[in-house]
Simulated scan of single mutants.
Amino acid sequence: MLENIKLFGFHGCMPEEKYIGSHYTINIEIEFDFYQASINDDLSKTINYVDLYDIVKKEMNINSKLIEHLARRIIQKIKDYKRPLVKYTKIKICKENPPLQGNVERVCVVLEGD
């Protein structure tokens, strides 16, 4: 699990979101058979969290209107990274201080994939 990844991105439907951008917090949970890695102490038998972070960072740099779309792309890239060993992925993406007509700390989406 990667928790509280903090990145900046330009996602949203409003024109100003494409220019001003927002801060985002991302959490990723992955179900994976870690048995071989735990026995062999071998990085190739597990999911390298540096690679996961790089996937998230790369996808955050591709603008989307919807964070739901961004979440789906990240899940797909994670599945492609260690197919078929990744059994389940859950991602939560939160836009901090969204441009709303009120005091809202964040808006979040949670998406799951298997």
Rank of each mutant, 00 (worst) to 15 (best):
Met1Ile: 09
Leu2Phe: 13
Leu2Trp: 12
Leu2Ala: 06
Glu3Phe: 06
Glu3Asn: 13
Asn4Thr: 11
Asn4Cys: 06
Ile5Arg: 08
Ile5Leu: 15
Phe8Gly: 03
Phe10Trp: 04
Phe10Arg: 00
His11Ser: 05
His11Gln: 03
Cys13Pro: 10
Met14Glu: 14
Met14Trp: 11
Glu16Lys: 09
Lys18Thr: 05
Ile20Ala: 08
Ile20Tyr: 02
Ser22Phe: 11
Ser22Leu: 03
His23Val: 08
Tyr24Phe: 15
Thr25His: 10
Glu29Asp: 13
Ile30Phe: 04
Ile30Val: 09
Glu31His: 09
Phe32Cys: 11
Phe32Ala: 06
Phe32Asp: 11
Asp33Glu: 13
Asp33Trp: 03
Phe34Asn: 14
Phe34Asp: 14
Phe34Gly: 05
Tyr35Gln: 11
Tyr35Glu: 15
Tyr35Asp: 15
Ala37His: 08
Ala37Asp: 12
Ser38Val: 05
Ile39Phe: 10
Asn40Pro: 01
Asp41Gln: 06
Asp42Met: 06
Leu43Asn: 05
Leu43Gly: 02
Leu43Ala: 09
Ser44Arg: 07
Lys45Pro: 02
Thr46Tyr: 07
Asn48Tyr: 13
Tyr49Arg: 03
Tyr49Glu: 06
Val50Gln: 11
Leu52Gly: 01
Leu52Trp: 08
Lys58His: 10
Glu59Asp: 14
Met60Arg: 00
Asn61Lys: 08
Asn61Gln: 10
Asn63Lys: 10
Ser64Phe: 14
Ser64Thr: 12
Ser64Lys: 15
Lys65Asp: 13
Lys65Trp: 10
Ile67Ala: 02
Glu68Arg: 00
His69Asp: 06
Leu70Phe: 02
Leu70Ala: 02
Ala71Ser: 08
Arg72Met: 10
Arg72Asp: 14
Arg72Leu: 12
Ile74Glu: 06
Ile74Ser: 04
Ile75Tyr: 02
Gln76Pro: 01
Gln76Glu: 11
Gln76Ile: 11
Gln76Asp: 11
Gln76Trp: 10
Lys77Asn: 12
Lys77Glu: 15
Ile78Lys: 00
Ile78Asn: 01
Lys79Gln: 06
Asp80Lys: 07
Tyr81Lys: 02
Tyr81Asn: 06
Lys82Pro: 01
Pro84Arg: 00
Val86Gly: 04
Lys87Gln: 13
Tyr88Met: 05
Tyr88Phe: 14
Thr89Glu: 15
Lys90Cys: 12
Ile91Thr: 03
Ile93Ser: 01
Ile93Ala: 02
Ile93Asp: 09
Ile93Lys: 03
Asn97Lys: 15
Pro98Ile: 06
Pro98Arg: 03
Pro98Ser: 04
Pro99Glu: 12
Gly102Glu: 05
Val104Tyr: 10
Val104Thr: 07
Arg106His: 15
Val107Ser: 13
Val107Arg: 00
Cys108Thr: 02
Val109His: 00
Val109Gly: 01
Gly113Thr: 07
Gly113Phe: 11
Asp114Ile: 03
Asp114Asn: 12
Asp114Ser: 09
